Amino acid sequence: MRHFDEIFAIAADRHGGPAALDGKLTKPDPQITALPEDRWLSVMTRCVFNAGFNWKVIAAKWDGFERAFDGFDVGRNAFMDDAQLDAHLRNTEIVRNGAKIQSVRDNAAFLMELRDAGGAGKVLGGWPSQDYIGLLEMLKTRGSRLGAATGQYAMRFAGRDAFILSTDVTARLVAEGVIDKPATSKRALRAVQEAFNHWAAQSGRSLSEISQVLAYSV
Rank of each mutant, 00 (worst) to 15 (best):
Thr170Val: 09
Thr167Trp: 02
Leu165Pro: 06
Asp161His: 03
Asp168Phe: 07
Ala183Gly: 07
Thr184Pro: 00
Ala200Asn: 07
Arg160Ile: 11
Ile164Phe: 09
Arg190Met: 10
Arg172Lys: 15
Phe196Met: 14
Phe196Trp: 02
Lys186Arg: 15
Ala195Lys: 14
Glu194Ile: 03
Ala188Tyr: 08
Trp199Lys: 11
Arg187Cys: 03
Ala191His: 13
Val178Met: 04
Trp199Cys: 12
Glu194Cys: 09
Phe196Pro: 03
Val192Asn: 09
Phe163Gln: 03
Ala175His: 11
Lys181Thr: 12
Thr167Arg: 14
Leu189Asp: 01
Thr170Phe: 07
Ala195Met: 12
Ile164Gly: 08
Ala175Arg: 10
Val192Cys: 06
Val174Thr: 11
Arg160Asn: 02
Gln193Arg: 10
Trp199Ser: 12
Asp180Lys: 14
Asp168Met: 11
Lys186Asn: 10
Thr167Phe: 02
Ala158Leu: 14
Leu189Tyr: 02
Val192Ala: 04
Leu189Val: 11
Phe163Met: 06
Ala183Met: 08
Ile179Glu: 08
Ala191Arg: 15
Ile179Cys: 11
Arg190Leu: 15
Gly177Thr: 05
Asp161Ser: 09
Ala175Pro: 01
Asn197Trp: 10
Ala183Asp: 09
Asn197His: 03
Ala188His: 10
Ser185Leu: 06
Lys186Ala: 14
Ala191Glu: 11
Thr170Asn: 12
Arg187Lys: 15
Asn197Asp: 15
Thr184Arg: 15
Arg190Asn: 08
Ala175Trp: 02
Ile179Leu: 10
His198Ser: 13
Glu176Gln: 14
Lys181Phe: 00
Leu173Asn: 04
Ala175Asp: 14
Asp161Tyr: 10
Leu173Trp: 02
His198Phe: 07
Glu194Leu: 11
Trp199Arg: 11
Val169Glu: 05
Asn197Ser: 04
Thr184His: 15
Leu173Tyr: 05
Arg160Gly: 08
Phe196His: 05
Ala175Lys: 11
Ala200Glu: 01
Ser185Gly: 12
